[in-house]
């Protein structure tokens, strides 16, 4: 019964993620693609929670839905014609380049899936909070990558401000 239920949960989540991702990829209007992305993110959050990574799941929701998706929709609404913009047609150059890009990403992902040693945790330990472990690791073992990432983000922030300011000056 338990195994049956857990596989039901997994396949439902997988169907939600793949289905909404397909809508995102093939939607004719940008806004539909954006809103379908919401359900992809919610599905991925569900997968994280299903794997007992509670903090990671909620962080996924805060960062991807609360930050990135809201910003994305904001951008779509500000573009000319709103979300009613049609996608560009499929030409002779697009298809080979798309196949190449997707193929390369697929190879990299496949390599990661096959050759990463995935640590497995006992079911009994799954209910323990993961925040303490994550916090300790971030401030000890992974402190340098963490700081480098924050400096990188700060640089991006300053760069964006510089670019936006210059445009505002030129318009005057």
């Amino acid at each position: 019964m338990d195994e049956w239920l857990s596989s039901l949960v997994f396949w439902t989540l997988a169907a939600v993620i793949v289905g909404s991702a397909l809508i995102t990829a093939f939607a004719r209007t940008l806004v539909y693609a954006g809103f379908a992305l919401l359900f992809t993110f919610l599905g991925v959050m569900g997968l994280y929670l299903y794997l007992a990574a509670d903090f990671l799941g909620i962080a996924q929701l805060v960062i991807y839905v609360g930050g990135i998706l809201v910003l994305l929709l904001f951008g779509v609404m500000f573009t000319q014609g709103g979300g009613l913009m049609k996608q560009p047609g499929r030409g002779a150059i697009q298809i080979p380049s798309a196949v190449m890009a997707v193929g390369m990403a697929f190879v990299v992902l496949l390599h990661v899936v096959l050759y990463t040693p995935w640590p497995v945790m006992a079911v009994e330990r799954a209910a323990e909070p993961t925040t303490r472990t994550i916090g300790t690791l971030l401030l000890t073992k992974y402190l340098l990558p963490f700081e480098v990432a924050s400096v990188l983000l700060l640089m991006a922030l300053v760069g964006a401000v510089v670019l936006a300011r210059r445009e505002a000056k030129e318009q005057k």
């Binding site: 806004v31 809103f35 919401l38 509670d54 903090f55 909620i58 962080a59 929701l61 805060v62 839905v65 609360g66 998706l69 809201v70 929709l73 904001f74 609404m77 709103g82 979300g83 909070p129 993961t130 925040t131």
Partner: peptide, 25 residues
């Protein structure tokens, strides 16, 4: 009784925001 209750409640308001944008559009 969630281990990450505060974070969870803050996160749920993200869904509300997306819903409001959806209604507006």
């Amino acid at each position: 009784d969630l281990n990450i209750g505060v974070f969870y409640i803050l996160a749920m308001s993200a869904i509300v925001a997306v819903g409001i944008i959806m209604a507006g559009w």
